[in-house]
C-alpha cells in the first residue's frame, strides 16, 4: 500500500471488493483508479513488444492506459468506473 486516504467530507460507505483476488475495502464514490492508487498498484497492464508494464496516465478516460479486467470484462477503464460492492478487479501488470 503506498497511498492513503485523507479526511474527506463526501466519502461514501465502505465497499468490499477484490483486487487480484485479495480482499480490499474501498468506499462508494471512488473510482477503480483511485482504489488502485491507494493500494499502490500502478502497473495495470502490459504494453506491446517486450511487454513492458504500463500504468494509468490521463485519469480522464482518454488515454486507455488504465484498462483492467472488471468482473471478468477486459478493457474497462479504471478511471471511468466507480467501485461497487463485490467488484472483482484484475490487473495484468504484475
Amino acid at each position: 500500500m503506498s497511498g492513503r486516504r485523507l479526511p474527506y467530507p463526501a466519502r461514501g460507505a465502505p465497499v468490499a471488493i477484490r483486487l487480484n483476488g485479495r480482499p480490499v475495502t474501498a468506499f462508494a464514490g471512488e473510482t477503480v483508479f483511485a482504489v488502485l492508487c491507494h493500494e499502490g498498484v500502478f502497473a495495470l497492464r502490459r504494453g506491446g513488444p517486450g511487454r513492458p508494464p504500463r500504468g494509468a496516465l490521463c485519469g480522464m478516460g482518454v488515454c486507455q492506459e488504465c484498462r483492467v479486467t472488471i468482473d471478468g470484462t477486459p478493457d474497462r477503464r479504471a478511471c471511468m468506473t466507480l467501485v461497487a460492492e463485490g467488484m472483482e478487479i484484475e490487473t495484468d501488470g504484475r
Partner: peptide, 19 residues
C-alpha cells in the same frame, strides 16, 4: 507506471486519496 498526468493526481486528491 507512476508517471501520471497532473490532472489525474489532482482528481485523486479531490477524491480524498493521496496516491
Amino acid at each position: 507506471p507512476g508517471v501520471i498526468a497532473t490532472g489525474a493526481v489532482q482528481m485523486l486528491l479531490k477524491q480524498g486519496i493521496l496516491p
